[in-house]
């Protein structure tokens, strides 16, 4: 089976499961409509989900993903208290700017997760990614330094090691 077809079948099953979770299962009409919609979706967008051959260490990667999830949730709670502190402070203590960091991740999916995590963690918002030079531009609400290396450690370093374990 080619990678494209495997990806299509995975997308079909996943989208059908989401449909079942969103609708009332007892009704046969809903199930048939779900099958049709899932088929159309997997035909149009199915080939993008899986792009590589079977990968190793599924169990280890799964545990890394769980650890990552908890770390991410903790960072997110911190981010929310940070925003609350800023907006409730009468002086608005902000020093905004756009800085640049580098990343070592290679897969598209890994970079997507990294940038989404950066957006949801304290004080940072991803503005753009340059896939050729592997640079990420980040709007920082409280700029501490303008050095690329140091910022990479400060912003990306929190997640990058774990994400390497999860994705590669």
């Amino acid at each position: 089976m080619t990678i494209k077809n495997r990806s299509r079948i995975t997308v079909f099953i996943l989208s059908f499961l989401v449909w079942l979770a969103l609708t009332h299962i007892g009704d046969i009409q809903e199930v048939i409509a779900g099958l049709i919609v899932a088929f159309i979706v997997s035909m149009i967008a199915g080939k993008f989900l899986i792009t590589t051959e079977k990968s190793e260490h599924i169990v280890k990667r799964f545990f890394s993903a769980i650890i990552y999830l908890f770390k991410f949730l903790w960072e997110m709670v911190k981010a929310n208290f940070h925003v609350a502190y800023i907006v409730l402070n009468p002086n608005l203590p902000i020093k905004p700017g756009i800085v640049k960091i580098k990343t070592d991740l290679t897969k598209d999916s890994a970079i997507t997760v990294l940038t989404n995590s950066i957006t949801l963690t304290p004080g940072t918002l991803t503005v753009d990614v340059n896939p050729e030079t592997k640079e990420i531009y980040i709007h920082w609400i409280d700029v501490l330094s303008t050095d690329v290396e140091e910022n990479t450690k400060l912003i990306g370093g929190r997640f990058e090691k774990l994400l390497t374990e999860v994705f590669e």
Binding site: I86, G123, T124, L125
Partner: peptide, 23 residues
């Protein structure tokens, strides 16, 4: 509150994304 108080579109997005997602 951040959407109202912060100065430009980027800072406002910061407050809007983080807090509204979590909330």
């Amino acid at each position: 509150l951040g959407l109202v108080r912060l100065p430009d579109v980027y800072n406002r997005l910061q407050a809007a994304t983080k807090c509204v997602t979590f909330g």
